[in-house]
Design a binder for these strands. Structure first.
Ligand code: FES
Ligand code: FES
Lengths: 149, 149
DNA sequence: TCATAAAAAGATATTTTTATCTTTATATAT
DNA sequence: ATATATAAAGATAAAAATATCTTTTTATGA
């Protein structure tokens, strides 16, 4: 449902959260290698995230991407909205171009409540929280990044 | 979420159900025009549906597409599975490549129940039923096919 | 100041999806 | 039988998404 760009973004931000500090910034190549995705494509995506203030970056030697104070409250919603446009979740699941109670598709009455819950969750789930869950999870399944396609 | 091909297919099958009979078959151009979608692309999609027995067709003069006895029990699920591959609904909503309880993504616990309900609904909703709903609906909103993008 | 490493920006290439065009096969009517 | 209308099949084109490559900018360290 998400574009690859969005998947890569989520994956990369989680990796960044768990593996970078202001004193240990990570290059896009480094991240791409770790999570096994195409490096130049990720570089583009990281640029988008930086531009919207979801992650931070510094150019030059010893530069790279990292998370700063400003980034700590960012959510999963922010990442997806930056890369993919969140409207995709608002629209009809079966792709009618209006999704509302007055003109429901066959799936509407089961999709609408799900959609509401999902968006609420995406908006409240911070990157930090998510990274933490991911860290725990990787105790059970340490090929965790390979799992993200 | 659905491909355009699938959307077109659903739309066309509904139109066919409500507007064709064995004595009044419809050409692909005719249908495409009525539901305002690209004719040659729809033709391809109708061929796929025919091959899988979801709709019927006859070549030659006065030929065209129509629904026969064999098609009456077909469901929305059948259409989508024919054109798009239903696996797309089974997979993780945030695109992890495994979707299961042991390795849930952030959305899993709200997505899984929705997914189950949806697939059940797609499997039980017959084309006939859907076309009927659509007919009623179009009393309220008679630009109903324009509504399908 | 100068060389260097890295992001940023821009340009190009590949793949997939969507759309169109052309040819062939077949059923119908004359 | 023959001409015709239509689906079926196959080939090609255009657009969008994904991926890669090249150049420019900027921060750092020597
Ligand atoms: S109209 Fe389809 S999900 Fe709302
Ligand atoms: S793991 Fe993502 S929806 Fe199940």
């Amino acid at each position: 449902m998400l574009s690859k760009a969005s998947k890569y973004a989520i994956s990369a931000v989680i990796y960044l959260t768990n593996n970078s500090t202001i004193d240990k910034k990570l290059g896009s190549k480094e991240i791409a290698e770790a999570i096994e995705i195409p490096a130049p494509f990720l570089a583009k995506t990281l640029q988008q995230l930086t531009k919207k203030g979801i992650i931070s970056s510094i150019k030059g030697p010893h530069g790279g991407f990292y998370l700063s104070e400003k980034n700590t409250d960012k959510t999963l919603f922010d990442i997806i909205d930056c890369v993919d446009d969140i409207e995709k979740f608002n629209s009809c699941y079966l792709s009618q171009n209006n999704c509302n109670e007055n003109n429901p598709c066959v799936a509407h009455h089961i999709y609408a409540p799900f959609k509401d819950k999902l968006i609420r969750k995406l908006k409240t789930k911070t990157i930090i929280e998510m990274a933490e869950e991911f860290k725990q999870n990787s105790n059970l399944n340490n090929q965790i990044f390979a799992v993200l396609t």
